[in-house]
């Protein structure tokens, strides 16, 4: 019974992982790729690890898998935030069909204020 639940969780995680990687290939610029890949791959990997917990039960493996889930949920958004901020400061533009870029306007405004 628990193995069946674990297998279903692992298959759901694989679907999310696959869609995240498909977004990494299909979407047009860095920020959109970060959107799809961070969200989907984080949840997909956490579901796979949860499936491993159901396969093994609560023992040495299960506790480590739960710690790993907690750790990925904490660190993955932080890494995405760091990468997006760094690539914006390094000057990579948004996709040409973007609606607005308030961050670029504000940064250029502050740079002009420093110069004058």
């Amino acid at each position: 019974m628990t193995e069946t639940i674990g297998f279903i969780l692992i298959v759901c995680g694989l679907i999310f992982d696959f869609s995240g990687c498909l977004g990494l290939v299909r979407l047009p610029d860095v920020y959109n790729r970060l959107q799809s890949s961070t969200k989907c791959v984080t949840l997909g990997t956490c579901l796979i690890l949860l499936g491993a917990v159901f396969y093994n039960g609560i023992n040495a493996v299960g506790i480590k898998a739960i710690l790993c889930i907690w750790f990925i949920f904490m660190t993955s958004p932080t890494a995405a935030h760091a990468i997006s901020r760094a690539s914006h400061k390094a000057g990579y533009k948004l996709w040409k069909g973007s609606a607005c870029d308030k961050y670029l306007e504000d940064r250029q405004g502050s740079l002009k204020k420093e110069d004058s």
């Binding site: 498909l22 299909r26 959109n32 870029d101």
Partner: peptide, 15 residues
């Protein structure tokens, strides 16, 4: 959004 063939996105940075 990823599986849709037309990619229905309208991105931008807001404050």
């Amino acid at each position: 959004r990823v599986l849709h063939p037309d990619l229905p996105i309208n991105p931008g940075i807001v404050k």
